[in-house]
Design a protein around this nucleic acid. Structure first.
Lengths: 235, 235
DNA sequence: ACAGGCGAAACTTTATACAATCTTCGCCCA
DNA sequence: TGGGCGAAGATTGTATAAAGTTTCGCCTGT
């Protein structure tokens, strides 16, 4: 069992104050309460969490490393605004990694994990019925993270955490319609395949799931927006 | 209003002082001048680089996130000591990612890149002839990073940087013989395939290259490591 | 002689103070 | 009236000091 003496890599360390800040800000970004481009002032965050700027800085630097926050020298930290090129890279990486992850998940399947997956699907359905968009967004990301935890590969898990966080921003910026961020049906299909330890089906479902998410995106050039805006204002 | 160079994700920012520290320590670890388990005192490093502990701390936290340094609460930072399980994960991830990376490199090939690759191979050969083990180790890692830069995928590049750094520690800990860390011949073959834009061959060469590296490893129980380290220090 | 505990030193963690830089707003001039 | 210059304000970058924790040596008691 995970004895506490050695936290190892990025153990959450929930009791740590800087981790609390990091997770709080991450949750806010993932639930789309903080929009891309929002400035994250050090004093501002520090006051919210009752911590000094030293700790806030540490948390922001971690978030910058995860790619969901940009730190501009002498200007401060901002919620990242992924470009279409970033979006394509993120989803290409997910298409490469996640089929392999779900593959490993098939091997790690156990009653305990089945239980956790089922409970998660229930939560997702409830949030969707409730119309709780914030919870839905968060939970749909959590599903993929759960599969990664199940795979038992800490490196894949770390990579995927980063990719999921960025995906959340990408979906917010470039989603075409008001479709749900992640179709629950797909998740159900994936769980079913994992339960049957059917790697082929699990990989296929995961891949088509990711493809469908990306297909919902309209990766327009942000520069075009600014130009168009400039035109309108200049005309 | 020219587009201002946005630092984006982890732009090296070589002029940045904390990056200088990070790269210095990274180089020392990658060249096996700092052994796994070595304590990295903040004062000690700060004195070397003429910086205060604030900056050192920032650098060490980044290195911890990259997985080559472990930070233990209230005890300090230590050069990471990957377990055999870590090693297997790292190489599995590399086998998954690097064939795709070299695939993209084939598409990005240009006279400029050919030039850089050739120059790198020359450097590697020279270091090996010189018998400069430190340079050899560093350069063999740089080769893989160069391919990743060539692919133009910043996310893959970031992932691979981390994997390469950890690989260096793994090779140091678990290498069976005093074989070169990365056979230069393999690198030459890979470059040849990339020049011809032969994706099939490039992927195949990269994969067998990685397999050969891992085959040179003896992933024994980590308890044995401590024994060997104790032997070295006690002798 | 050895085990156990007390205490000091060293180190990390956190907070605060200072310096450097950027932004903004107002004023002056063409 | 519009633009440019400049100073004040705000914010970040860096250093230093205070607080808390661990570790190691020493001393005492059995």
């Amino acid at each position: 069992m995970a004895a506490k003496p050695r936290p190892k890599s990025d153990a959450p360390d929930v009791s740590d104050r800087v981790s609390r800040i990091r997770e709080g800000v991450t949750a806010a970004i993932l639930e789309h309460r903080l929009l891309p481009g929002t400035k994250l002032g050090e004093d501002e965050i520090g006051e919210i969490y009752g911590a000094s700027r030293t700790l806030v800085r540490s948390a922001l630097q971690q978030l910058a490393h995860e790619g969901i926050v940009n730190i501009e020298k002498n200007r401060g930290a901002f919620v990242a605004r992924p470009t279409p090129a970033d979006a394509r890279e993120v989803f290409e990486a997910r298409r490469l990694i996640e089929p392999t992850i779900v593959d490993h998940a098939c091997e790690a399947v156990s009653p305990m994990w089945i239980e956790r997956l089922q409970r998660h699907l229930t939560e997702e359905r409830e949030a969707e019925l409730r119309g709780d968009a914030r919870a839905s967004v968060r939970l749909s990301g959590d599903f993929h993270r759960l599969i990664a935890e199940m795979s038992g590969h800490s490196i894949y898990l770390g990579f995927l955490k980063e990719l999921i966080a960025r995906s959340s921003l990408i979906i917010l910026l470039y989603r075409r319609h008001d479709t749900p961020a992640c179709g629950t049906d797909h998740h159900t299909e994936i769980v079913a395949a994992v339960r049957k330890r059917d790697k082929q089906a699990a990989r296929a479902h995961m891949l088509s799931h990711l493809n469908e998410i990306e297909a919902e995106l309209f990766l327009r050039d942000p520069a075009a927006d600014e130009l168009r805006l400039a035109d309108v204002l200049g005309a």
